[in-house]
Amino acid sequence: MDALKSAGRALIRSPSLAKQSWGGGGRHRKLPENWTDTRETLLEGMLFSLKYLGMTLVEQPKGEELSAAAIKRIVATAKASGKKLQKVTLKVSPRGIILTDNLTNQLIENVSIYRISYCTADKMHDKVFAYIAQSQHNQSLECHAFLCTKRKMAQAVTLTVAQAFKVAFEFWQVSKEEKEKRDKASQEGGDVLGARQDCTPPLKSLVATGNLLDLEETAKAPLSTVSANTTNMDEVPRPQALSGSSVVWELDDGLDEAFSRLAQSRTNPQVLDTGLTAQDMHYAQCLSPVDWDKPDSSGTEQDDLFSF
């Protein structure tokens, strides 16, 4: 819950932080000083300027060897085509990944977070970031790969997607708890209302004896509580940590079903599988986004697919 609360507080303090972009060759504004600060901008989305290598189908939802083989196929196909790589912007948030063309600003792909089953910074092609997700059109699994400016960037994108998945799962947990509370309150309110109706004398007997209905007592009954809980029953509950912020979080049926399955089948359902080692994760978390744009010590960066 700490990640969720800190993310909400950060967004309320400075929503404009989320509009910064990394990996864009110096076009961005001043960047936060450390990885923790940038992680807090996830709610509205972190932007990464990358190059799209392509996509291939895979048979399993996750796995280092599986993704490595898929990336190898994608890279080989991209090299064989001889075409310049498409420059894209990857927007990562707890909602998922939005992929747009840098030149036309046209939407290429919009992947809900619950469809993503794996992401990684490839070991062999260490400047490549990739994720595996279920197609929104059918049940097939797709591996999408992107060329980053350097290994640090690939690791940073991988960690960002993993963190977005974690925050999304926490949102789901909060929403589920809130819905259970509202359902319980609604049920209790309905029981109270039913009890009051059972003990209320029939209207005919009131008229016969000349008694008047006590409207004041009726007004004191917990009807307002019942209506408050039943009027918006169809509205999706939102985490309290975000009250007053500009973010509107809505959970669709697909996300609810997917996270429910994860909660039942996995020990740590909030953790998205990645190909990063503990050492890689520690190294990337210690980086400032400013470091992502620094040239690798191995030599001059080449803006070309064939540089790796």
Rank of each mutant, 00 (worst) to 15 (best):
L4N: 00
K5T: 01
A7Y: 09
R13S: 04
R13Q: 10
S16R: 14
S16Y: 13
W22T: 13
G25K: 03
G26F: 06
G26L: 09
R29F: 05
T36R: 10
R39S: 04
L42T: 12
L43I: 06
G45V: 12
F48M: 11
L50A: 04
L53V: 15
L53F: 12
L53T: 11
T56H: 07
E59V: 11
Q60S: 11
P61T: 10
A68W: 13
A68V: 12
A70N: 04
I71H: 08
V75F: 10
A80V: 14
S81E: 10
G82D: 13
K83M: 09
K84W: 11
K84Y: 14
K91P: 14
V92E: 12
R95K: 08
I98E: 14
T100I: 15
D101V: 07
L103N: 02
L103R: 15
Q106A: 04
I108V: 04
N110K: 13
N110S: 14
I113H: 11
R115S: 10
S117P: 11
S117M: 12
A121T: 08
D122M: 11
K123C: 11
H125K: 05
K127V: 00
I132H: 12
S135A: 10
S135H: 09
Q136C: 03
Q136Y: 06
S140Q: 11
E142L: 14
F146R: 13
L147A: 03
T149S: 11
K150F: 10
K150M: 01
R151I: 01
A154F: 01
A154E: 03
Q155M: 10
A156Y: 05
L159D: 03
Q163K: 05
Q163S: 12
V167A: 03
V167S: 03
A168V: 06
E170D: 08
F171I: 01
K176T: 09
E177Y: 06
E178C: 12
E178P: 05
K179A: 00
E180N: 07
K181G: 07
R182P: 11
A185T: 11
E188M: 05
G189T: 06
G190D: 03
G194I: 05
R196K: 08
T200G: 08
L206T: 08
V207I: 15
T209N: 05
G210Q: 04
L212C: 08
L213Y: 07
D214P: 08
E217K: 06
E217R: 14
T218Q: 05
L223E: 01
V226D: 06
S227A: 07
T231W: 07
N232I: 08
V236R: 03
S243I: 14
W249C: 12
E250L: 11
E257T: 04
A258Y: 00
F259G: 02
F259Y: 03
L262I: 08
N268C: 01
N268F: 02
T274P: 02
T277N: 01
T277H: 06
D280L: 11
M281A: 01
A284P: 13
Q285R: 04
C286K: 03
C286V: 07
S288N: 10
S288K: 12
V290Q: 05
S298H: 06
Q302A: 04
Q302E: 04
